[in-house]
Design a binder for these strands. Structure first.
Lengths: 401, 401
DNA sequence: CCCATATAGTTCAGATTGAAAACTAATTGG
DNA sequence: CCAATTAGTTTTCAATCTGAACTATATGGG
């Protein structure tokens, strides 16, 4: 007998409708809908909405924000919004820096801090300790603004096992099967701290707080080339949790060996290291190399131009294959692909036109506008979304002060 | 205000549980569970299951099949099964043949017929007329076995718009934006006839009635190279409905031009025509060419061996990229890839090992066992699944004799 | 200033439906 | 033949939605 699906109970209806109302409030955003508007928008009766909203207000997730006057006749409604006094801390460990951000339920970045930190090769304990310092700043900021912290999200540039709080593999940090204790970063937060992959979080940040549509592929150009696949407004992680490895799509079967053990991967043509090397700008720190490359491109240096052109061409091959396999109709470029967009984009579009003509409309190939906060917003957003999708569980956990 | 989600009503609970019970009966298959076993398996109470089963039996979807004696103490239960007197007709239009099958709710192929028919270039009306003749045979068989036909599924080798009953593009039939009227094939069937893509239906057939797991990629080697992506036991069609186009993944950026307008696509190396040509066996009808190729392979002809070896190598490149992008962990080969498996598989595995070492376990690379009935089973199965997933709607539609 | 009108939100009866427990039904085995 | 055991039904209760009636609070014309 298969027990994969739970039976429907009478109470499930309320769970679903609590989520529906909360999600409606979240989507409506600045409009601060009244109960009557929510009833019209969701299809529920006013009576049901009133009852649901009462529970949400009592839990502290939703706040009434005074009268909603529109100059029309009739009794004015009470505006509702996601509480700005409940927040989630987004945190990021990357190869060259650490960052934290405090995001309220409405998705506003209320505090932000980052420090340079050369984390490659450092043991996780040291990195987590440094990050703890930043997290303390976020906690202080939350206290100052009277925001109660519900939980946190921690993004790392590698494959993670979210259930076990383990980094399975983060080659660019030289981490392999490292057990973390993210909860220790935010002692006392009722929802704990959720570990996630950096490219996936950036994709989700783009979806919820950026220009993301319901379906798109986010391409993360950091030290490695990563990807986040958004399908039907949800992250597609695949059965094993490692989908979106755009960097290791084979773009040339006779290409060079890759650090993944394969050959001809996109990363060997379009990763940061590969581009710097091909451009002849591989001297100095990451910042210096980036500056050198941008300067060379601005000066129309032929070697640098060709390096970026080639990267764009092979990225086009990978995107053509991805679009064919997954029916992807929109792409958002992040990381160094966003920085290099001006020089990369023409070659990329030409390549797409050659390998998958007409499949991807150039206006659906955009650059991320969230810059470095996208990952933080996405990491925090995952916790916020989990509350919006299951408010009942949150209500049960007890009302916060 | 966003109204994408419907509100939860009290009655939704019953809809869900009707489906849950029906699905449990379907999954349990030959074991013919009793109400008590269903209660244990679903987590519902015996009282709830009794009430739900009563509705399902009344609708004719479920039948009681006498006492369930197991020699244990206690009152024996009434065995339950999906009614073998309700059926769905699966139909297939392909380049060289037409086929129909009558599938009962339990997934048993109760009748099967196919005719050779060179459909390439024929207008849809003529093909539909010929298919209508086969459908009449299926109807007669249903009448003889006292099976009432609920609906049908029609698979075609091309991209379809299911809502509008339109074949958007079937290059190998030379059809482009052809409006069909599949309902006319089965006048009076309450659920109508559902149009679908051949590779997708074959993938679903493999999932429901073959060796399919919850997540796999089905590779269809017909005249073109197609694919069906199954994720979490569901078909992934992508936002535009055309996902799984494995044949047009770029496997060599300097490869030859492809009929799709691109270049270096898998189909130019591993499509039927490409293999026949490279093997030097492109004379005669499809059957003759296939026989020639198999004979040449059996005789260890070097040209034929190399052709199939190359096809396997490039298929490996495409599968490596697919596995990386979508985290695919299992692959089922169908069509000519199944026929050629003996010669193709070693090259394919070597290629996978080169481009994505360790990613796909060789034991998860299997060959379809359903042969030609997979597509029919899948096409019919889609209608059967829709009933299993929404029995309430079916109940409302009225009970059949 | 007052009252008709309009809109927001609450209260309450009625319906649906699953849980829990008590009950009836049918079988095995000593 | 009866105790034990398991299957399935009936009854009572609680959760929660809908719909209709009701209360609350605004605008605007006379």
């Amino acid at each position: 007998m298969n027990e994969s699906t739970a039976p429907g109970r009478v109470g499930d209806v309320r769970r679903r409708n609590l989520s529906l109302v909360l999600d409606s409030i979240a989507r409506t955003g600045d409009a601060k809908p009244s109960r009557a508007q929510l009833a019209a928008g969701t299809g529920l009766t006013k009576a049901a909405v009133s009852s649901l909203v009462a529970d949400l207000v009592e839990s502290g997730l939703v706040a009434e924000v005074g009268l909603y006057r529109d100059g029309e006749r009739g009794r004015p409604g009470q505006g509702l919004e996601l509480s700005s006094r409940r927040g989630v801390v987004g945190m990021e460990i990357n190869v060259d820096y650490l960052a934290v951000g405090l995001v309220d339920l409405g998705g506003n970045l209320r505090f932000h801090a980052s420090v340079e930190s050369r984390n490659r090769g450092l043991p996780p304990e040291n990195v987590m300790e440094r990050l703890g310092g930043l997290a303390a700043e976020a906690k202080a900021a939350a206290a100052a603004e009277k925001i109660s912290i519900l939980g946190g999200g921690l993004a790392v540039p590698g494959l993670v096992d979210e259930q076990r709080n383990m980094v399975l593999s983060a080659p660019n940090l030289h981490w392999e099967r490292e057990q973390l204790n993210p909860r220790s970063l935010l002692e006392g937060a009722p929802l704990g701290v959720r570990l996630s992959n950096e490219a996936n979080s950036a994709a989700l940040g783009e979806l919820w707080y950026g220009a993301g549509q319901a379906d798109f592929l986010y391409v993360s150009g950091e030290v490695g080339v990563g990807g986040g696949v958004i399908i039907g407004s949800e992250l597609y992680t695949g059965p094993g949790g490692s989908a979106g490895e755009l960097g290791h799509i084979v773009v040339h079967p006779e290409g060079p060996a890759c650090s993944c053990g394969g050959a001809g991967c996109l990363e060997t043509f379009a990763g940061q290291e590969a581009i710097f090397e091909a451009a002849g700008t591989s001297e100095g720190s990451l910042g210096e190399r980036t500056a050198l490359l941008l300067a060379a491109l601005a000066a129309q240096d032929p070697q640098a131009t060709k390096a970026v052109h080639d990267a764009g061409r092979y990225l086009g091959v990978a995107l053509a294959s991805s679009a064919r396999l997954m029916d992807i109709e929109a792409v958002v470029l992040g990381g160094h692909f966003a920085l290099l967009s001006e020089w990369l984009r023409p070659a990329l579009l030409a390549s797409l036109e050659r390998y998958a003509p007409g499949l991807l409309d150039p206006k659906n190939l955009t650059v991320s506008g969230l810059e470095h906060s996208g990952t933080l917003l996405g990491a925090a957003g995952q916790v916020i979304r989990s509350v919006i999708e299951s408010p009942f569980e949150f209500l049960l956990a007890g009302k916060l002060a």
